[in-house]
Simulated assay, not measured.
Amino acid sequence: MWALGVWWVLLGTLGTGFAQLQFQKVDSVIVDSCNTSDIILPCVVTNLKENNEKSMFVKWKIHGRDFFSYDGYEKKFNRNSTFQSANLLNLEKFRFGIASLKLSKKEALPGNYTCEVVESHREGDTIVELIYTSGNSCRTEPTFPKVCQGTSWFESLENFFIIATIILAAVLFWLQFGIVVLKFDTTLQKKIGLSAAGIIVTFAAVIGSIIFMPAGYTASNQAGLGLIVIPAGILVPLLYFLFRSVFEKQPLFAVILLALKTLGYLIAVTGFALCVSACPPKHGSVMIAGLAIIDFVAAVGLIYISIIGSSFKDHQPPRKAVEEPLNDAKGVMLE
């Protein structure tokens, strides 16, 4: 009798094992900011018997809460409003045990995902953790915990320098403009033109920085970087017109500054072209170096206009004082 009892226990244990669905083991899926495609969460059953979609059912959970299911008998999907992009990776292969889930990166929250599959009277589940390599962009969902996801396109220090250099360039322009307007004779038309161009550069820098800052490598990040770098070229002719307001004839040093600022802009644009289609970017330092040259020239130009320009103006005789003796001399010669 004892041996018979052991035999029934062994049969029950074996029967339970056969009733449990088994899965390919995948512990985690790791995603970084350079991944712009949909997220695939694997769930593959390895011991199906019937291979019949009508006898199968799959449910996906995150943090223990249901958000997606598919009933093979009724061919019916059910999705949580937070995960509208959720779908089976390949519906045609579902009957062969492939219940992997596809999610848009925007909706894919980091955390533990549970895949539960039922075939007739057998069932099983597997857990896959979705990991983002760094968490610096957070949001709160109404039915899920606060989550952070995504990584920055550039390193944090590079982000800081990119934004700081363009903001500094705009500030230095407005300081130059203020000194020129206060100390030198400037026509109303020129004031309007310079201020309008300055507003365009400043607006592009601020909006570009706001769009560029969020984590990720997306079209909006690329557009933000473009707004930071490309409009900075306007600062080159602006410096030229500011010098023209100070000096009747461009001194050699002013010409050198204009050439350096043009060179800085060309370097920044080259760096931008190398970075905009690369993730992670390998030439961010080139772009930052170009923007830093623009700032350096702007700072030197500010000092030059403030000190040398003012001194130059003070030592220049008034135009009327020069013109009147010339007119008198012409009159004497005519007589």
Results as ranks from 00 to 15, higher is better:
185 D>M: 13
205 A>R: 05
160 F>L: 09
54 K>R: 13
114 T>L: 09
67 F>E: 03
247 F>L: 09
27 D>S: 15
119 E>S: 11
332 V>D: 09
70 Y>C: 12
137 S>G: 13
133 T>N: 04
288 I>C: 10
28 S>E: 10
84 Q>S: 14
191 K>V: 14
149 Q>G: 08
198 G>R: 11
298 A>P: 04
230 I>S: 09
72 G>E: 00
190 K>H: 14
202 T>S: 13
207 I>W: 06
178 G>A: 09
313 K>W: 01
139 R>S: 15
288 I>D: 03
165 T>F: 02
72 G>M: 01
181 V>L: 05
112 N>H: 08
261 K>Q: 15
115 C>N: 11
324 E>L: 15
255 V>N: 15
127 I>F: 03
217 Y>N: 01
160 F>P: 07
53 E>H: 01
195 S>T: 15
94 F>M: 13
23 F>A: 13
290 G>A: 07
17 G>T: 03
310 S>W: 09
8 W>M: 15
229 V>R: 03
172 L>W: 00
3 A>N: 09
325 P>C: 08
242 L>H: 04
42 P>D: 01
327 N>D: 10
267 I>A: 02
50 E>H: 11
270 T>Q: 01
202 T>Q: 06
177 F>D: 04
324 E>Y: 15
334 L>C: 04
244 R>N: 12
156 S>H: 04
182 L>I: 13
223 A>G: 13
3 A>V: 07
271 G>R: 02
318 P>N: 02
248 E>V: 00
91 L>A: 14
61 K>P: 00
294 I>M: 05
175 L>N: 11
113 Y>V: 04
72 G>S: 02
289 A>D: 05
78 N>M: 08
242 L>F: 01
235 L>K: 12
60 W>Q: 06
34 C>M: 00
322 V>T: 15
91 L>D: 06
292 A>M: 12
251 P>Y: 00
71 D>H: 11
64 G>C: 12
297 V>W: 04
254 A>C: 08
53 E>V: 12
71 D>L: 06
33 S>I: 03
261 K>V: 08
314 D>W: 06
331 G>P: 01
225 L>I: 00
155 E>R: 11
152 S>R: 05
140 T>R: 15
285 S>T: 13
228 I>C: 04
171 V>M: 06
16 T>Q: 04
8 W>T: 13
258 L>S: 05
24 Q>A: 12
217 Y>L: 01
29 V>G: 12
43 C>T: 10
210 I>M: 10
190 K>S: 14
189 Q>K: 15
159 N>R: 09
291 L>Y: 02
73 Y>I: 04
121 H>D: 11
295 D>T: 12
291 L>D: 13
110 P>N: 09
235 L>P: 08
292 A>Y: 10
78 N>C: 02
293 I>M: 13
202 T>Y: 02
39 I>R: 02
182 L>N: 14
315 H>C: 05
257 L>N: 14
221 N>I: 02
252 L>Q: 11
90 N>V: 00
226 G>V: 05
167 I>P: 03
144 F>Q: 01
94 F>I: 09
84 Q>E: 10
158 E>M: 04
162 I>Y: 04
154 F>H: 08
152 S>Y: 00
179 I>M: 06
104 S>M: 04
184 F>H: 07
